[in-house]
Design a protein around this nucleic acid. Sequence first.
DNA 1: ACCTGAACACCGTTCAAGT
DNA 2: ACCTGAACACCGTTCAAGT
Lengths: 178, 178
Amino acid sequence: MRVDARRNREHLLTTARAVIAEQGPEASLNEIARRAGVGPGTLYRHFPTRQVLLAAVFRDRVETLCARAADLLAHTSPDEALALWSRDVLAHALTDRGMSASMTLGGAELGFDCHAAMRSAATGLLLRAQREGRTRPDVDIEDLFQLVTGVALAASELPGGLDRAERLLSVTLAGLRR
Amino acid sequence: MRVDARRNREHLLTTARAVIAEQGPEASLNEIARRAGVGPGTLYRHFPTRQVLLAAVFRDRVETLCARAADLLAHTSPDEALALWSRDVLAHALTDRGMSASMTLGGAELGFDCHAAMRSAATGLLLRAQREGRTRPDVDIEDLFQLVTGVALAASELPGGLDRAERLLSVTLAGLRR
DNA sequence: ACCTGAACACCGTTCAAGT
DNA sequence: ACCTGAACACCGTTCAAGT
């Protein structure tokens, strides 16, 4: 990869992060390119679809959440780990617009598969909670995932912010216990 | 209102229903006008914003759900009424793309306030369940609403369809009990 | 090998001109 | 009083031409 190409890629990523923080995940790709000082073709060369760009933008955060899951798996009780991790996901989703949408972005063509990463991180927590804890055995990882991102989406679009989010999460976590 | 205006309005609504069923609530307004055989200006005259159009399109279904809530309130036990009504909302949301998005459409300028209608219909069910049933007293009507539409949104975007939707709903309803 | 930016087909939205 | 449809500013996307 040529040095100017690599620099363009980095700069596009930085700009995309800023614009998406401002305008959300539907932000104009042309504007991202414009603000980064490159032609739209250059953006498309590096990120052939919007989803590829979003996956790249949120990669760091997703990896942070995955590391957190591994940590909780090693150091916390099953029920508590699930609760704390869900709360973390929620906090990230409330902070970064588009984060919750990105968490469901999957597929090998993305360069980085957010969905697969999140899924495998959460699977460990769920299986252990079902084995040792008091978690309903019939829910699968997609269910857990949908419930948490659903709460995140709801909370990010409604007034009441974190308070409401915590309440919705507590309802969901209570529902997961048997 | 002139007869041709009224006829245009009806025809636009019928066309919009069809196009939205095909393409979802983000369907092109120009295409709706085109298919209805009128200029885009005519669509805008009758429905000044997309939300006004969506509220008009889904008015019938929302009113059906409200009537159902009143019926359940009169003839069913608190817990069961809440469960049956949620299941109904879910079924409507899975059938009609854009229905769940429309349920959150509020404001007096819409001609018909879907959100207010749904909220007042569901409030009766929730209050009674909290008074007589075993429902958590700290959740409010917005919480209930968000949980149900969240499940609906999740289920409509994920494979697994109705089965998964039912499971997610049962988790949520379990979480609502104290 | 990579970038550029004009070009294309679309979109939402407006508004002067018509009937 | 209502409709028309050309027009505008934007969007995503592509691709010949450049370096």
